[in-house]
């Protein structure tokens, strides 16, 4: 397979706390991959390293064959990475349509901007809410709006930090369908997720992080049967 993301020997510490420890990670183009791990495992920190919000102490990140380790966040986004945060990162004072305009106007103008907005509104089931202030949408709708903002300009890689956090079971199922559709369109997806049922719904393969290091990799069945994985989760539950 053709790797879209290659992380090698990535290390990051804050004072005495190590959040990334010699991480080697390869993600194939077109994959639908989940990162799991107990609280404090370093999942969100790994995302922040990928996005350039934290600079690594050592190691390298390559995206589509280019070394992006030294690039700023907005430069990485322009190369085709897109992100949806755990807490909906939308502009609450703007309407749904304005949110999408801001998200796409960097790449699209005029009629193609209008057309894309219309399609994303349909895709996210928000057509009826186009003029609504984003701040008054339901939590699930805010999550969808942000997914729409992240995918309207067709990124190569979509990073999702707990995309279903706080969603109802029905909203979670719909979100899974959305992600499958996006993946079918060729968007590689890397998601941090806690909900194992959702991981089973969407992931081809799973990586388990623990204490800043990669603990296990494999298919969802291999991971659920892995003797050490349940132990670290139960250990985390005991904390």
């Amino acid at each position: 397979m053709n790797p879209i993301l290659e992380v090698s020997k990535l290390n990051k510490s804050f004072g005495g706390v190590t959040v990334a420890r010699d991480i080697d990670f390869v993600l194939d183009a077109g994959a639908m991959h989940c990162l799991i791990g107990p609280n404090g495992a370093g999942k969100s920190s790994f995302f922040r390293l990928l996005l350039g919000e934290h600079a690594p102490d050592s190691g390298a990140i390559r995206f589509s064959g280019d070394d992006i380790t030294a690039l700023r966040s907005f430069e990485r986004i322009r190369k085709g990475i897109s992100v949806k945060f755990q807490v909906p990162g939308i502009f609450k004072a703007l309407s749904v349509r304005q949110n999408l305009e801001v998200a796409f106007q960097h790449h699209l103008h005029g009629a193609s901007l209008g057309g894309t907005i219309r399609r994303v509104l349909e895709f996210t089931n928000l057509t009826g809410e186009a003029a609504t202030h984003a701040g008054v949408l339901s939590h699930g709708q805010q999550q969808w709006l942000e997914i729409g903002m992240a995918v309207g300009v067709e990124p190569k890689l979509l990073l999702l930090d707990e995309p279903t956090a706080g969603m109802s079971p029905d909203e979670t199922r719909k979100t899974g369908e959305m992600l499958h559709e996006l993946n079918a369109r060729g968007i590689t997806i890397l998601a941090v997720e806690h909900d194992m049922a959702f991981v089973q719904q969407i992931a081809d393969s799973v990586t388990v992080l623990h204490m800043g290091a990669i603990f296990a990799k494999g298919s969802i069945d291999e991971i659920t049967e892995h003797p050490g994985v349940q132990e670290i989760y139960l250990g985390a539950a005991d904390e």
């Binding site: 907005f74 986004i77 992100v83 990162g89 502009f91 609450k92 703007l94 801001v102 106007q105 960097h106």
Partner: peptide, 24 residues
């Protein structure tokens, strides 16, 4: 214009604005 929209987006949520590809 797009400039004003981005300015307001930065005021509302600078991290999100940067993660849409803008040099805030």
């Amino acid at each position: 214009a797009p400039f004003g929209n981005v300015l307001v987006a930065i005021r509302e949520n600078p991290e999100r604005a940067e993660m849409l590809g803008y040099d805030i």
